[in-house]
Design a protein around this nucleic acid. Structure first.
Lengths: 196, 196, 196, 196
DNA sequence: CATGAATGAGGGTTCATTCAT
DNA sequence: GATGAATGAACCCTCATTCAT
């Protein structure tokens, strides 16, 4: 897809931006800091992005493509719905563990508050993810693995909300503990509550 | 408590600050905007707050005291655990509906990312709220209203997470729909899932 | 003399001002700091001084009157010129030792640079002092105690310059050593060089 | 030495700063005034100096290097000690005559009072100068040109003090008379008093 | 005599961005 | 591609001073 066609420099800049935001929020993402991080001059950045919003757009585009790719890998597997749910959660949390900065970029919607486009972008990433979970829950309900007396939409909603809450707390703690065990706990709760 | 003793002007400034943050995030909370909003000069603000961080601290203090007050009202009532849970959710969502700006201040943790103290403050507000929900769930488990095979902590976690997610989506939508029905839906889901 | 008619409050403010200047130069002498130091509100200061320049004028007036008084005590004594010289130096240095802040006020002419009147005031204090030393040197030359082949004016000039230099170094050192021994050394040098 | 490697713009800014301080003390050295003087915008200054203290540091560095250069020229010459003393004084006073502003920067220690580093810097410039004079006096004592019954240190002290006093008076007078004749007078006095 | 509240002017500094080279 | 230099706009904050009470 064209949207994921980034030059090496662009990817380098995107990753530097993610790192900066991860370190101290969008306030740290200044052209000066970014240039220093990348090791080029400030004007040089403008060869690769037309302005700061464009940069953030590309950061989100970049992250979305990787998330979707991960979601597709799971969705395309021949696991059972329950196993897929587990896989989705574990993979997501593993990805965050490996790169906590991404949490800040993706889960701090407030950051883009004054820019509808970017907020909408973040929202869309959230909804794309949702749709995969929804599918899995629906499948699980069809197979009878998951209870049927609550709509798949509502179940998905609770799962997404819990996951986000989990990650946000981890973030607010300064990433001071391991995220994965929390994911296991969550899954445990999910399965208990969803048992039909 | 003395910490909630604000002068009229201070309350006025606090509310103006909340309004500004609500409108466009912390980026909009500049001394210039704030002064304009309050209708005084910039230096005048500094008679009432020693600096911007202090202002934010007081904003959070102010909001926390109102939240705790609301929580106490419910906790102190003689409702059943189920009814209390409903009351907590409805009141919280009603409060947000009446003043959507507060959502931005309280649920956009990222806003304070570069200030540990403020982040911790927001975190603490979250945890205070949590503790009230936890108590209610525990009570409900004792009375047998809520299922017992999942710990109260985990249930609370899911409830808080779902509520937050609900509010955040509402926020990202630009407060474009009514929040309260979503709360009712949530409660409906909770009660179905928690039935013992 | 009318110029030394200060109310108690005025003296209190003057001394607070001297203390502040002593601590960190004129930059520290803000109305806010001064009010805090005195223990009154900022506007209250304006009951006693019409503005900051007026305050500084009174500070200098106050200090000049005390300096002149000290000089007169020595000049009016029936000591020999040599003894008077010694007495002048020792008393001056003793006064500075007791109140190092005054050094900053009196010997940092640069502080008043942008105000001709105050600069002139400081200059006049310097010249008043000079005149007393000059008289003593002249007397000493008449009695033959001091050499005659250099004019009293030039000798006075060297004495004043050396003393100032001595005090300024003491100041730049952060008042980290005893000033009086340096005065003794100076006197020793003077007497050796001035011996006729 | 690398520390004296200033770009053209930096030198231009340094000189503008010296001019401003000369005109009205450090109070006149604002970024706004400086920018106007240099003919650039305020932010432009920050490409050449990281902040105001850094600017002052560089101003002092710049002046020190020129002073030391001048001192070395004299010290390295094959003049006699007496002639060297004369040369040191005359050159110093000539330099000040050509650029009276420098006097304000170098002899108004009070200006930097609230910044230990800068005060120490000024102090060090003073001491470097001192050391050259001391050497000359010592040499003169060895050759018998200067009297021996007062230590070279004390003599140097008196010379430095007198010179400073001379320059400060000139400054306080608003540079209203010629400095050089005063230097000649001073030298005359020195030679008379130091004759062995 | 004193204060709380306020203010115009101005302080140093950082921002995203542009432009000539 | 990349850079050094520059800038308008804006940032938070402090100053001496005034005024109603």
């Amino acid at each position: 897809m064209a949207e994921t066609d980034f030059s090496d420099r662009q990817v380098q800049i995107i990753n530097a931006a993610i790192k900066l935001i991860g370190e101290g929020g969008i306030q740290l993402l200044t052209t000066k800091n970014l240039a220093r991080e990348v090791g080029v001059s400030e004007p040089a950045l403008y060869r690769h992005f037309s302005n700061k919003v464009d940069l953030l757009r590309q950061v989100l585009t970049y992250l979305r493509s990787r998330i979707v790719q991960r979601l597709n890998e799971v969705a395309g597997s021949d696991l059972s719905p329950s196993e897929k749910l587990r896989e989705l959660v574990i993979r997501q949390f593993t990805a965050f563990s490996n790169r906590p900065e991404v949490v800040v970029v993706l889960l701090s919607e407030g950051l883009y508050q004054n820019n509808n486009e970017l907020s909408a972008f973040v929202f869309s990433i959230m909804q794309v993810s949702s749709s995969y979970y929804l599918k899995v829950i629906k499948d699980g309900q069809k197979t009878g693995e998951f209870r049927n007396d609550v709509t798949a939409e509502r179940i998905t909603f609770m799962i997404m909300g819990s996951m986000r809450f989990c990650v946000i707390q981890w973030h607010l703690s300064g990433f001071s503990y391991k995220l994965l065990p929390k994911g296991e706990e969550l899954l445990d709760t999910f399965f208990t509550l969803l048992k039909s």
